[in-house]
Write a protein that binds this DNA or RNA. Structure first.
Lengths: 221, 221
DNA sequence: CTTCTTGAATAGTATGACTATTGGAGGCAC
DNA sequence: GTGCCTCCAATAGTCATACTATTCAAGAAG
């Protein structure tokens, strides 16, 4: 296992990242490499590497004589999966989930439109819709969620836009958060499945508008 | 000036990033820290810090005994502004611009919709539309482009979604690429300005659908 | 042919020293 | 008093070196 490799680095990075995200280090606060070394017990190279990453994520600036300064939230790279994970494990959790929903509502209908225009992946989408139906009949929660994830991931990938495809990993962070076993879920499932099928058939028919509308309805649920 | 601070680190990071982006180091290729140290002339800590950042950007994996391995493109953090800049300076440039257009087409109409629902920023949007008109009358290209950037940035910020707001910096990379002075531009400007006004008034009227449609038409140009 | 052992390659970690930059304090001129 | 200049000290940046831990792969053993 890789449990203990790069552990020092990861832990320092994680601690700093979390401290900034949840406001224990607020925007404008300063700190120094040496202070972090002393606090964390890690060596200087490790701390420096961690701060470099945080600088690259827009969370810190580093200046001689000034030390490390926390940047305002507006400048953080909120689309980085690592940051999303930190936010999901912070008091910001609900906000992060809301924002992910908003982002999906913006991006996925358009991805469905593009995929329909390209007419790509219709068969796979239809196959995944079958799996959605099967897992519903069998009341197999994990299988349902997994199929759902693959459906949306495939759609984003098939749009032929690398940046949209990248959002797959971003929204995946949200989808991974869902837990199976909600009884109310199975009642809503039939309509949900029908909408997924609608997307698949619209893509097969290259009907961009229909695909986008159906996808929007899926996400509006 | 900060011209020469962190120069060693930045240069190593830039060289490696560019080499990966433009395929001189292809997916699956391996390299070692020591080799990079030898090639670049920089010290080990500097090279290590750069590789840490590239790992965090999803472009590299680091393993003992294996060294550094370039990850496939699908796993790169294509939404990171730094990566976008690298792509814009690579043979991938046109693809990157296309993808940015696609992303805007997905995100900005939805941002307009959300902003309209919240009814926020209508006055500022209207003011920027005025500036668009004024700069058109005066044939002031840079002023026009700047106002246009501020219009779209404000709209993304006003949607109240941090992740959407973050996309402002992402699309800004594209908007910065435009050059003023295209004569054909001024002929299209009146319609463009009218659409911007339409967005502003729709936001003021809290008419989400109208705002989204107008924004979509702006981007479809 | 398969499985285990062993070794070498390589990233990870640590330490210490030196350099360069820069913000601020204190002094100096006006 | 005010504003400018000088100098100093704090701090990140850079470098060299050594040691540790991990892991792949070759070779040995069965």
């Amino acid at each position: 296992m890789t449990t203990s490799d790069g552990a020092a680095f990861r832990q320092v990075l994680d601690n700093l990242g979390r401290a900034i995200i949840d406001g224990r280090m607020a925007a404008g606060d300063t700190d120094t490499v040496d202070a972090i070394v002393a606090r964390s017990g890690a060596s200087r190279p490790v701390v420096r590497e961690a701060t470099r990453v945080l600088v690259s994520l827009g969370m810190l600036t580093a200046g001689r004589r000034v030390g490390l300064r926390v940047r305002p939230r507006a400048e953080w790279d909120l689309l980085d999966p690592q940051l999303i994970r930190w936010r999901l494990a912070s008091p910001d959790r609900e906000t992060q989930l809301d924002e992910l929903r908003g982002l999906r509502l913006a991006v996925e209908p358009e991805a469905a439109r593009l995929t329909a225009i390209r007419g790509i992946g219709a068969e796979e989408l239809s196959g995944i819709a079958d799996q959605l139906e099967r897992s519903t009949l069998e009341r197999d929660g994990p299988a349902f969620l997994d199929a759902d994830r693959r459906f949306h991931a495939l759609l984003l990938a098939a749009a032929g836009n690398g940046m949209l495809a990248r959002l797959r990993d971003v929204v995946d962070e949200a989808l991974r958060e869902r837990t199976p076993g909600d009884p109310a879920h199975w009642q809503a499932a039939p309509g949900d499945i029908a909408l997924h099928r609608e997307v698949a058939t619209a893509v097969a028919a290259r009907d961009a508008e229909r695909a986008a509308v159906a996808m929007r309805r899926i996400l509006a649920t």
